[in-house]
Amino acid sequence: MNTEEGVHNLPDGQELYTKTWKTSGSPRAILAFIHGFSDHCNAYGELFPTLVSAGIEVRSFDQRGWGRSVKQPSDRGNTGPTSQVLADMHSFLQSLPSQNAPLFLMGHSMGGGQTLNYIFHPDSPYNKDKTSRPSFAGVLLYSPLIALDPSTRPSRLLVASGRIVAKLIPHMQKYTPLEATLLSRDEAVCRDFVADTLCHDTGTFEGLAGMLDRGIWLEGMFEGAGGWVESELPFWFGHGTGDRITAFPATKVFVEALKAKGGDVQFCAYENAYHKLHAELPETTEKFFADVKTWVLEHVPGTEGRVKL
């Protein structure tokens, strides 16, 4: 397996760190990956090498405000509003090759909530100009931020006041640490997260408010009429039943509602697993890897029923 680092230049001049995990020959599929809050694309352990071993090339980037895309302390968590977050994502996705292999999109945690907003929200750049949208063969989400777990979810009053502060001082930073012990049942994974200086746990009031509002929109997406854009894409969801960062029940409700609307959806629940399915106890992570590989390869055009791992 070879890797290649690079830079993606955004329209406003910002540079995003990028990385590609390459297959030895022509890839069977390309997977674009969107990381989560206080995370970065090099923090996903054996997930990407495992996908590469199945012929799936992985392309990812550190989002604005995160990882190696941060050039100075004031950049930490400075993602901009949701419109900027989705525009950055769209710019990166438009730069990916789409001719030689089918393209899949995958998001984890905050990145999962972003991905769902990107596909379904009518104001997303993906839906604003359908003539230039990336062509996906499928979309995968795991531990997506549809709702925070009740034990960590802020009150409605706090969310409302946060929106006000975000308008007054949008770029002011707020240290908002994730509880490391809730990320995985593997204690070494929790220690590694704490030691990783690129996982800085810092957001801006604007970025934090946008992240929460994207989840709130997803929770109410199916209420009323005309509030979301239907998609014919196939979707795969994975979530641990023991996740106390993002809420497993919210993902289950979303999946059931999407199915009821005629969506092509598969949902895998991982018993007692925590937030980082890619870095959980071996029996969970091995099954998660196998489920992802199988689903992607089953959705490569022309390979139905002929999947080999």
Rank of each mutant, 00 (worst) to 15 (best):
F120L: 13
S184M: 07
P177Q: 02
Q94V: 04
G210D: 10
R64W: 14
T284M: 09
T152W: 07
A87I: 03
K261G: 08
T241I: 04
P134V: 00
H171V: 07
E219Q: 14
E283A: 11
V300Y: 06
L51P: 05
T79P: 04
E179P: 15
D264V: 11
L233G: 06
T152K: 10
G240W: 06
T241L: 06
I56R: 00
N78W: 08
L178R: 04
F222M: 11
A273G: 07
T23W: 10
C268Y: 13
G162C: 09
I169R: 15
L86T: 00
A290H: 12
P150R: 02
R244Q: 13
G138P: 11
G238N: 06
D62I: 03
A260I: 03
R28D: 05
S143V: 02
R306I: 03
R244W: 03
E230R: 15
A260T: 09
P27F: 05
R64Y: 11
G6C: 06
H200Q: 04
H278E: 05
V70K: 00
G207N: 03
T284Y: 05
S231P: 15
H121P: 02
P122W: 06
I245E: 06
P102R: 01
E4V: 08
F104Y: 07
L148T: 03
D12K: 07
G302V: 11
D196Y: 04
R28P: 10
F205Q: 00
F267S: 01
E223M: 09
P170E: 08
N117F: 07
K71Y: 13
S38G: 06
L309D: 12
E5A: 14
A225S: 15
R64P: 11
T176Q: 11
G226D: 08
A137S: 11
L141H: 15
F37T: 00
V292N: 00
F289M: 05
M106S: 06
S161Q: 11
L140F: 12
L198F: 12
D213F: 09
